[in-house]
Amino acid sequence: MLERSFFIPMTDRSNEQWLAELTGAPDIQARALEDLRQRLQRGIFYYLSRERSDLAHLSGQELGQMAEDLAQDATLRVIDNLDSFRGDSRFTTWATKIAVRLAISDLRRSRYKDFSLDGLTAEGEVLPASTGDAFPANAAPTPENATERADVMLKIERALREALTERQYQALSAVALQDVPLEIVAERLGTNRNALYKLLHDARRKLRQSLEAQGLTTDYMLKLFEE
């Protein structure tokens, strides 16, 4: 854990003031809540409008409405989690962390609302066909190289089928091959992100061990397919 930031707070309240006012008398609490909500809304709007090229098609008004809705939800979440604030950072930074996670989660769910793990099974073809056809013409391997690649590809496919459980296979395929966020895959698997991260860690290790047991080191595979 890092020590308290050396940065001098630019907020109008110290951490202690934020905590006291957010749990204070109703009128004081209401003002602090509104200040916090507005602050989170500005941060979220900045992120949506300046950092998310995938939202560039939305108007300023639409982004503003999104930011407002997200800031409202984030403020409630901050209040629900006040007890977990450790004071290692500025209070507003901690609150912004919560808002950022909520906003990004919302965007992920929207983008992957139709995503399903159903088609990801070890029986289906996930990896390239084991022929030279899988490679672009300008990188076509020599006949010897193509045979070697095809052999390695079969070993990789075998490792995927035999070393991993169905759950590990689905998770690895979605996260590593299809770039689906962990959060989305975790939801589909009925687990949480932390547990999925550990599951993926185990899957990677098992896959690596299986490949190495077949004589396929990482360096060898990288070299073979970069030639």
Partner: peptide
């Protein structure tokens, strides 16, 4: 780069970044 090749590289990268 074809999609298939990029998938293979992703898989290898995933194994490499195992920590």
């Amino acid at each position: 780069m074809s999609l298939h090749e990029s998938e293979l590289h992703k898989l290898i990268d995933c194994i490499v970044t195992s920590h």
